[in-house]
């Protein structure tokens, strides 16, 4: 069974970068797929990768990650600049970030209209 846990942006908004990453990884390490409203900053994304590497062991093999952002083609120029500044400083509520444990999620594929979570086939135990 695949469990998805939604993390509203308000849950991480007031947290430091380290705590944001920890909160997400705690969900993923408990073998759930985290659906984060919005996205982390660029630096936090690399922080997530670094911290993931620090946590890898025989049970936790890492993460699969996908950031989906809204199409900004129709947004005005001033709004684009404002969004870029806000995102660089604090991340953004726009879009969604999917983070799953690599022991369960083999790959996350993005299509214009759909997201595919490819799961790892697990060997069934013989009775």
């Amino acid at each position: 069974m695949l469990t998805l846990q939604f993390i509203p942006y308000s849950d991480i908004e007031g947290l430091s970068s380290e705590k944001r990453v920890k909160k997400i990884l705690d969900v993923v390490k408990s073998e759930k797929v985290a659906l984060l409203e919005g996205r982390l900053t660029r630096e936090e994304e690399t922080g997530l990768i670094s911290t993931t590497m620090e946590n890898i062991n025989s049970n936790f093999k890492g993460i699969e990650l996908l950031v989906l952002t809204a199409d900004r083609k129709s947004v005005g120029m001033m709004k684009k600049i404002q969004n870029m500044v806000v995102e660089l400083i604090s991340g953004t509520r726009q879009g969604i970030t999917i983070i799953g444990p690599a022991t369960i999620i083999k790959d996350i594929k993005k299509d214009p209209d759909k997201i595919q979570l490819l799961t790892v086939e697990r060997k069934r135990k013989k009775r």
Binding site: T41, R42, E43, E45, I49, L65, V67, L88
Partner: peptide, 15 residues
């Protein structure tokens, strides 16, 4: 090329 790792690396360099 559309892997999140590629996007994250390039996004970080851009930032």
């Amino acid at each position: 090329p559309y892997s999140q790792v590629n996007i994250t690396i390039i996004g970080n360099l851009e930032a």
